[in-house]
Design a protein around this nucleic acid. Structure first.
Length: 866
DNA sequence: GACAATAAAGTTTTT
DNA sequence: CTTTATTGTC
C-alpha cells in the first residue's frame, strides 16, 4: 500500500509536521511558493496510509481547476485514480469546490430540503436578468438602482447568510429598504423558476443543516477529515458551512495565506483565517515560510512591499535559492512605449533560450491588455489571454445550455425566454408578454401557457402556432431525455454512481470496520426518522439552537450559536412546499459506500435510495440530446445562415457537443442533470490550459496560484494599481498591495515592472502619477530605467537620475509661437499658439504626422528644432 | 421582427 | 475610446 515513510522523505520539518497531523484542528499558514499543494497532497495520502477511509476525507477548493489538479495529484500519490461523478455517495475522497459540495448535498437531500431534483442554477448573468425583472415588477426605476448595484447588495447579504426578512429588518435607509423589497421579490422569482443562484447553493445548504434533522450529523460522520484550501478567501457562509461540518470530529485543516487574500470585495472575510486560533484554541499551527519558487531578490522585494500592510500577521519568507537578477523597473513614456519595452525584453529572454510559455504579463484590469496584445501581435510573439469564462459566456453556448436547462426544468423561465425565439420563430416580445400575462391571470406557468397559446385571445395565430410548436419540440426532447411528459419525475431510482467496484479505496481492515460502523449508524438514524413523521416537526438538535451575536457575526468559537437565533431562521422558511417532505425520508443504507461495497442499485437498495427524481440519462447520452436540440431547434441552420462568415459560432457549438461526448464517455451513468450541474459550476474547464508555448497575459487576480520564470507587471500607476476605487479605503488599499504582492511572488527568476508616464484611459490621454507601491520597493534590488524623460521628480517614484527640475524648466524658456519642435511620440510639429494657465503653459502644436495637439510644455518632452 | 442609431457606462470575478 | 444595451424606425 502506501509507505508513510516515502511520503515524507522529501519534506522539510514544518512540511512534515503539517502532513502528519491527523486529528484535531490544524492551521497551515502557507507563504507564497512554500510547497503548499505538495503538503496538502501528502497529508491526504498520509491520512489514508494511517487507515483512515478515503471517502471520509473532504478537500474543498475554490476553483474546479484546483480541485482537478488536487484530485490528480492525490491520485498520483495514492496510486489510483480519484474519480468524481459529482455525487455525494462516492467511495473515494471528495475533492471539490464549496459550490459543488453544496449542490451535491442539496441534490442528495433534495426531498428533505424541499427542492425538486431538477432545479436550475443561475449564473450571474441569469441573476442580473432576474433582478431586472424584479425591479420592473416592483416598478422601481433603475436610474437610482442599477441592477448591478442591487445585485451586489443581494449577493453580499447572501454571503453573510442574511435572509430577505432579516435584510428588511435591518434596513434603515431608503436604499437598503428598497433593496430589501427587490431581494424578497428576487427570491420569489427564483423559486418560481425553480432555480437557485450561486449564493443560494451555500445559503440553502447552511439552512438545511439547521432545518433538516439528521442531515448535518450524517454529513459530519461522513466527512471526518476536512481540508480547506485558500482559506483566506472564504466568506461567512462558507465559514459556517465548513465549521458546521467539522464541529463533531473537529478534524479541520485549513490552508491559506492572509497576504494573498485578494477577494475581500467578493465577500471573503480575512478574519476567518486570522481568528482560526480563536475558533480552535487547541489548533496546531504550522507555518511554511521557506520559499522554493523565487530568487532572493524577488522575495526581498515582495517582503518589503507587503510589510507596509498594517493589518497583518508578520511572516518571514526566506529561500535557499540564488540571489538572482535585479528586478527591472522601467518608467515608460506611454502605454505603447510600455508595451514595446516589455515585448522587447521578453524577446531578448526568448533569444537567450527562455521559452515563451515561461513568461507572463500581469495587469490590474483587462483593458490594459489591448495595447500589450497589439505589440506582441505586431512582433509575432505568440501569446494567449487567459480569460476563463469566455467560452461559456458566448451567446450560442448559453443558448444551447438554456435549451438543455429548459428541458430539465420547464419552470426555468429565464432559460425559456432566452431561447423561445432563438432562432426567430415568429414569437416576439409582444406576443410573449401577452401569453405570460394570460398565464399569470390563469395560474399557469409560462411553459403551460405557451402550450395553449393558440387559444389565448389576443394572441396572433402566427405566434400561437409558433408557441405550440415550440412546446411540442421541448416535449419531444424531454422524452428523448427520458423525462416523462407532463410529469415532473418518474421516480426511477438513480443509477449507482460509484466507480470501479472491487479495488479497495483506502482499504485495509480498519476501513471496513469503520465504514460498517458508519453505515449502521446511518441506517439507524434513518430508521429513527423514517417512521412517517414530518422531519420538520422535529425540534432541531440541541446544538443548533440558541442566540446570535449582534450583526449576524456568528463565530465558531461560540459554537452553541453557530446557527444563530432560531427565530431568525424561522423567519426564513425553506420553502412553502415543505409538505413534499411529508414523505418519510429513507436514506440509503449505504449513502456513503465503503470502498469494498460500492453502491449498487439492487432491488433492495433501490428502495433505500432517497426518492430523488433525477431524470435518467438521455438515450444516447447528453451528446445525442444536444445534437438533436441544435438540429431540430433550427439553431444550426440559423447559425449557418446568419452567423459569422467563418462559422465560428457553429464551431463553438460543435466544441460544446464534443465536450458533452466527453462527459458521456467519462460518466456513462451521468444524467442530463449531472451534466448541467457540471457545466453550471464549471466556468473555465481547463479550457485555457497552461499557455502552451505562448506568453500568458492575465489579470493579477487570475495569476494567483500560478508561477512563471519571467513575470512582467504593467501599469504601476496611481488609479490603476492601486485602483482608483480603493482610493479612500485603507483596507482596500491593502488589498491592492496584496494583489501586487501576489503578482511579484509568481515570478521565479525575473521580474519586470513598468509604469507609463502618459496613459490613455477611456479615450482620455492623461499624465499619470506613479503608484505609491513603487516607493515601497527596496531600491537595492531594482534596476530602474527611465525612458520617460527626467521632467518630474514624482514620476520617478523617488529613484533614478540626477537631473533636477530646474534643468528641465530652463529648457522650456525658449519656446514661443512658430517654434519648430520634436515630440518623442508625435514627431515634428510647429507651435501654433501658447497660453499661460494656472497649471502650466499650454501650447497648441500642429504636428506633421499626428495632427493638432494641446500639450502642457512643462510635461511634454519637447525638443527645439532648428 | 430586424436593423440601425443612440445612450450609458466602463476593477478585479474562484462559483 | 470602447463595448453593450436599449430604443426607435422601417
Amino acid at each position: 500500500m502506501i509507505d508513510p515513510k516515502s511520503l515524507l522523505d522529501d519534506l522539510t520539518e514544518p512540511q512534515r509536521a503539517a502532513a502528519t497531523h491527523v486529528d484535531g484542528p490544524l492551521l497551515i499558514i502557507a507563504g507564497a511558493g512554500s510547497g503548499k499543494t505538495r503538503v496538502i497532497t501528502r497529508r491526504v495520502a498520509y491520512l489514508v496510509s494511517q487507515g483512515i477511509p478515503a471517502w471520509s476525507i473532504l478537500a474543498i477548493t475554490f476553483t474546479n481547476k484546483a480541485a482537478g489538479e488536487m484530485k490528480e495529484r492525490i491520485g498520483h500519490v495514492l496510486g489510483r485514480q480519484v474519480r468524481d461523478f459529482g455525487r455525494l455517495d462516492q467511495p473515494w475522497p471528495t475533492v471539490c469546490t464549496f459550490h459543488s459540495l453544496c449542490l451535491r448535498i442539496l441534490r442528495h437531500y433534495s426531498q428533505q430540503v424541499g427542492l425538486g431534483a431538477t432545479f436550475s442554477i443561475y449564473d450571474s448573468s441569469d441573476q442580473t436578468k432576474l433582478i431586472k425583472e424584479a425591479l420592473k415588477a416592483l416598478d422601481i426605476s433603475s436610474d437610482n438602482f442599477s441592477p448591478a448595484t442591487v445585485h451586489n447588495a443581494i449577493g453580499d447579504a447572501k454571503n453573510k447568510l442574511i435572509t430577505p426578512e432579516q435584510f428588511a429588518e435591518g434596513a434603515r435607509d431608503f436604499f437598503h429598504k428598497t433593496v430589501a423589497r427587490v431581494y424578497t421579490k428576487y427570491q420569489a422569482l427564483l423559486k418560481q423558476n425553480n432555480a437557485l443562484d450561486f449564493d443560494d447553493l451555500l445559503m440553502r445548504t447552511v439552512q438545511a443543516f439547521r432545518d433538516v434533522p439528521n442531515l448535518l450529523p450524517e454529513l459530519q460522520d461522513r466527512y471526518q477529515y476536512i481540508l480547506i484550501d485558500e482559506y483566506q478567501d472564504t466568506n461567512h457562509a462558507q465559514y459556517l458551512l465548513a465549521h458546521a461540518l467539522a464541529m463533531k470530529h473537529r478534524n479541520m485543516c485549513v490552508v491559506g495565506d492572509p497576504d494573498q487574500s485578494i477577494y475581500a470585495w467578493r465577500g471573503a472575510d480575512l478574519r476567518n483565517i486570522l481568528e482560526f486560533e480563536r475558533d480552535y484554541p487547541d489548533a496546531e499551527v504550522v507555518r511554511l515560510e521557506q520559499n522554493y519558487r523565487s530568487t532572493k531578490t524577488i522575495l526581498a522585494i515582495a517582503s518589503q512591499l507587503i510589510a507596509n500592510n498594517t493589518h497583518r500577521k508578520k511572516k518571514d519568507l526566506w529561500t535557499e535559492n540564488a540571489d538572482g537578477d535585479k528586478a527591472e523597473v522601467t518608467f515608460c513614456q506611454d502605454e505603447h512605449d510600455e508595451a514595446e519595452v516589455v515585448m522587447r525584453r521578453l524577446t531578448e529572454f526568448h533569444a537567450a533560450g527562455v521559452p515563451w510559455g515561461d513568461m507572463a504579463i500581469f495587469y490590474r484590469m483587462n483593458s490594459l491588455s489591448r495595447v500589450m496584445e497589439e505589440s506582441l501581435f505586431r512582433n509575432k510573439v505568440p501569446y494567449v489571454i487567459a480569460r476563463g469564462t469566455e467560452f461559456y459566456n458566448r451567446k450560442e453556448i448559453k443558448d444551447v445550455l438554456a435549451y438543455l436547462r429548459l428541458i430539465a426544468n420547464p419552470n426555468d423561465e429565464v432559460s425559456l425566454s432566452r431561447v423561445v425565439n432563438v432562432p426567430t420563430r415568429g414569437l416576439g416580445d409582444a406576443s410573449l408578454k401577452q401569453i405570460a400575462a394570460w398565464g399569470i391571470g390563469n395560474q399557469r406557468t409560462l411553459f403551460e401557457s405557451l402550450a395553449v397559446a393558440a387559444k389565448i385571445p389576443g394572441v396572433s395565430s402566427r405566434a400561437g402556432n409558433a408557441a405550440v410548436k415550440f412546446v411540442e419540440l421541448v416535449k419531444k426532447w424531454r422524452e428523448l431525455a427520458g423525462i416523462r411528459v407532463g410529469g415532473t419525475s418518474d421516480g426511477t431510482p438513480l443509477a449507482p454512481s460509484s466507480g470501479t467496484p472491487g479495488e479497495g479505496w483506502g482499504g485495509g481492515s480498519v476501513d471496513a470496520a469503520n465504514s460498517a460502523e458508519i453505515s449502521n449508524a446511518d441506517s439507524e438514524d434513518s430508521q429513527g426518522n423514517a417512521d412517517g413523521s414530518n422531519p420538520h416537526s422535529n425540534p432541531p438538535p440541541e446544538y443548533l439552537k440558541r442566540g446570535p451575536e449582534a450583526g449576524g457575526e456568528i463565530r465558531v468559537s461560540d459554537q452553541a450559536s453557530l446557527f444563530g437565533d432560531e427565530s431568525e431562521w424561522d423567519a426564513a422558511p425553506l420553502d412553502e412546499e415543505e409538505s413534499i417532505a411529508d414523505e418519510p425520508f429513507a436514506p440509503s443504507d449505504e449513502p456513503f459506500a465503503p470502498p469494498d461495497e460500492p453502491t449498487v442499485a439492487t432491488e433492495d437498495s433501490a428502495l433505500s435510495i432517497p426518492p430523488s427524481v433525477i431524470p435518467p440519462m438521455p438515450i444516447g447520452g447528453v451528446r445525442n440530446l444536444m445534437e438533436e436540440v441544435v438540429r431540430s431547434s433550427g439553431m444550426e441552420a440559423h447559425l449557418r445562415k446568419t452567423g459569422d462568415a467563418d462559422l465560428s459560432e457553429l464551431k463553438n457549438v460543435e466544441e460544446l457537443i464534443t465536450a458533452a461526448a466527453e462527459f458521456d464517455k467519462e460518466q456513462p451513468e451521468g444524467t442530463l442533470i449531472d451534466y448541467l450541474a457540471q457545466v453550471s459550476l464549471v466556468a473555465d474547464v481547463d479550457h485555457m490550459g497552461d499557455g502552451g508555448g505562448s506568453v500568458t497575459l492575465m489579470t493579477l487576480h487570475a495569476a494567483k496560484g500560478l508561477e512563471f520564470p519571467v513575470v512582467a507587471i504593467i501599469g504601476l500607476e496611481e488609479g490603476i494599481l492601486p485602483h482608483s476605487r480603493s482610493r479612500d479605503d485603507i483596507d482596500q488599499k491593502e488589498e491592492e498591495r496584496r494583489l501586487f504582492f501576489v503578482g511579484i511572488t509568481r515570478a521565479r527568476q525575473r521580474l519586470l515592472i513598468t509604469k507609463a508616464q502618459v496613459r490613455t484611459v477611456r479615450g482620455l490621454r492623461e499624465r499619470t502619477i506613479p503608484s505609491p507601491f513603487l516607493r515601497e520597493l527596496p531600491e537595492d534590488y531594482l534596476k530602474v530605467t527611465d525612458r520617460a524623460g527626467l521632467d518630474d521628480i514624482d514620476a520617478r517614484g523617488g529613484y533614478g537620475g540626477s537631473a533636477s527640475r530646474d534643468d528641465h524648466n530652463a529648457g522650456k524658456l525658449g519656446f514661443k509661437r512658430g517654434q519648430m519642435v520634436r515630440h518623442p511620440t508625435f514627431g515634428l510639429g510647429r507651435i501654433d499658439e501658447m497660453t499661460d494657465t494656472g497649471s502650466g503653459t499650454r501650447a497648441v502644436i500642429q504636428f506633421n504626422a499626428a495632427g493638432r495637439k494641446t500639450l502642457i510644455l512643462e510635461y511634454a518632452r519637447l525638443e527645439k528644432v532648428g
